[in-house]
Amino acid sequence: MGDLTFDIAHMLAGGLVLLSFVMLYQDRLYALLNVYALHAVVLAASVAWQAFAQDAPHLYVTAAIALAFKAVVIPTALHRIIRRLGIHREIETVGGVGPTMLAGMGLVALSLAVMLRITPEAEPLAREDLAFALSVVLLGLLMMVTRRNAVSQVVGFMSLENGLVLAAAGAKGMPLVVEISVAFSILIAFIVIGIFLFRIRERFDTVDLHALDRFRGERR
């Protein structure tokens, strides 16, 4: 049983990392959103499995929140935003896929090296979990850095937050109130960012951040 628990947790967290990689090279917005929704579903499954493994019922609540908001509400809302902004046909050019993937692999290796080094006393389940969570966070950050479209930056931010939730679920004894407040702050961040997207669009007729830079008189 113990081995199976560990393996499944491992598989789910690894799946999260894999989906982060998938997101890195999605250059169409709808596809990106779909992958993000899948990312959230896997996160919910992973958290639920942690709830089962740690015998911590409150984590089921976290899993339910993740499923409801991140897998359903936010992707749907972003779908609508994209449709209303009329950018669903836009294709982002995201540098080379190869270099980005290589950088992502480097980041995963780095986070494994860091986490396995600094947590020798922690139990293996939490250790692996933390290593994967850090990888997801770093990959989300990498996505934010490489993207130019504001919507995909938002998605990068959200996937980064998924990594945080994964880490929180892996650490035993995290109070429910912390998780709920994190979930709500993400929701609020999403709302604020959504409003900003429309404001940017109103001003500049585009959500390409390039336009903002041009407006500030930057030369590249």
Partner: peptide, 9 residues
Amino acid sequence: FLTIRRYLG
């Protein structure tokens, strides 16, 4: 006076 992406970077 950097761009948002550079700050993120």
